[in-house]
Computed example of a mutant assay.
Amino acid sequence: MHNALRVYVRNASLQRVGQVDDYTSLTVVPRHNAIGSFTMEISADSTKAALLVEGNGLIIHTAGGQLVDSGPIRTVDWARSESDAGGGRLTVSGVSDTALLAQYTCWPAPTAAIGSQGSTVYKISAAKAETAMRALVNLNAGPGALAARKTALLTLAADGTRGPTITREVAQFDGLLTVLQDIAEAAGLGFRVVQVGASLQFQVYAPTDRSGTARFSFGLGNLTDANYSTTPPTCTRAVVVAGGQSSPRVCQTYDRADPLYPGLIIEQFVDLTSVDTASVDLTAQLNQAAEEALTAGAGKGSLSISPIDLPMLAYGRDYQVGDTVAAQVRSTWWTDVVREVTLSCTAAEGTAVKAAVGGDTGDNTVARIYRYIGQVKKDVARLKTRKAA
């Protein structure tokens, strides 16, 4: 297929066992700081069909050889209609290897057995954001985790000590992926898990600003369509409350005006009541918690564009998910992070690219509301836990 995405199959040991070059269609969606996905259709009569089973995975590259994403196969569905020739068709779906992070929670004492979890928080103190993220992954899922929790094939890329210094506490058994997303978004970093050799590697990276070279507009001839939408903020004032249990209660508010709604005040409670207010780093913890809440609750703009790969500007070579690009919206140039890219490939049309720029994690408005409700439910659960104690 001309300009086709290259698909390789791996087994449970991450060894390549074959290449699939006869698929009918393929859609792969790598996402910045979130779980990507892929869906592939292929004839059930293909000689490669036997490789496409749950437990195996796919490694997907651009035609130029750049890695798009990798991940396990989750479902293999079969269907046949009277118009289908032969044995019907298979629909193979899966997720990116970053989904591994969603399988784990953050234990307050990650090196201790479950019966010895005496604390209610895991403390991160005076560490660079990348260093803290690596420690969370290492101790809860990686080489430094308990034997029963360790993912044998998971490794960590070298620590680049990127991002600002952070001081915060992680509530007991918070989802590892969610905590990483909070830290990364506030620190301006990216992370992912991808296959490197015969291992799954957790990587942290500093997104690259390519807005000076990766520029898209109808006038430049490298856009087929574009649309822009906004989502109002869910938090413009963080009400951070620390202590109140074994130490005096401290309350502090942090405001961040929304540029589209400068007079709008939306308060959000940020629970740090498990923090001892006599701590020498109390101010740093309050500031960190407020920064994360205001960043997560800020108003968002989302731009969806359909770029055209040209010899001088192509996805995978000249810009990636997580990079900052520029696109012309009406008469104004919009600069923001590429949150996700949808690559669709068919035998007849080759590969088409559609990019989502801006937003929070590539979510639409409905998904954002659900995320907000999920946070409310988590806070309620914490309150019930404290009352029970």
Rank of each mutant, 00 (worst) to 15 (best):
G163N: 10
T151E: 13
N140E: 10
T91Y: 00
L100Q: 06
I266E: 04
I35G: 03
L220I: 09
V280H: 03
L154W: 00
V53D: 07
G212S: 11
D271C: 09
A50C: 02
E185H: 06
L5V: 10
V95N: 10
G243Q: 06
G71I: 05
L189H: 02
V170G: 09
V270C: 08
I266Q: 10
Y205D: 08
T253C: 07
D309W: 03
V95A: 09
A381P: 05
R339D: 11
L260S: 14
A44C: 11
A184M: 07
T151L: 05
V337C: 13
N364E: 07
L58G: 01
A49G: 11
A145I: 03
T111P: 01
A102Q: 09
P232N: 05
G57N: 05
I124R: 12
T295S: 09
G197I: 08
H2M: 09
R371I: 00
G94E: 03
A109E: 14
G301C: 01
A278C: 04
G160W: 00
A79R: 15
V270D: 02
G350C: 12
T111G: 08
D97T: 00
A102W: 00
R89F: 09
I59C: 04
A284H: 06
S247Y: 05
T234L: 05
S125R: 15
K384G: 03
G65P: 10
V321F: 06
R192F: 02
Y315P: 04
W107T: 06
A85W: 02
W334E: 10
V239R: 15
A157V: 07
S246Y: 05
G86L: 12
V280R: 08
S304Q: 13
V28M: 02
D159F: 04
T335R: 15
A34I: 01
R368S: 13
A238S: 10
G163P: 10
A242E: 03
I59W: 07
V329Y: 07
M40V: 04
G144L: 03
S37P: 02
L282H: 08
I166T: 01
R382F: 05
T167K: 01
A389F: 03
K377G: 06
G358F: 03
S274W: 03
S217R: 08
A129N: 05
A63H: 13
R192M: 11
R192L: 12
N364H: 02
L156H: 05
Y319V: 15
N140G: 12
R89H: 12
L176F: 05
P30Q: 02
K48L: 00
G244A: 04
A147D: 08
A50Q: 14
R162A: 14
G263C: 03
D271H: 05
A99P: 01
R89K: 15
P259L: 02
V193K: 12
A388N: 14
V170E: 11
R16A: 05
V7Q: 00
V9W: 05
P262A: 12
T230D: 06
V240E: 07
T111Q: 12
S302G: 01
F202W: 06
C251G: 13
Y315Q: 02
S96G: 15
V204G: 06
P72N: 10
A367G: 09
A158T: 15
K387L: 14
D271S: 09
T131M: 00
T47R: 13
A147V: 13
D276H: 02
E130H: 07
N33S: 11
P307C: 09
Q15M: 07
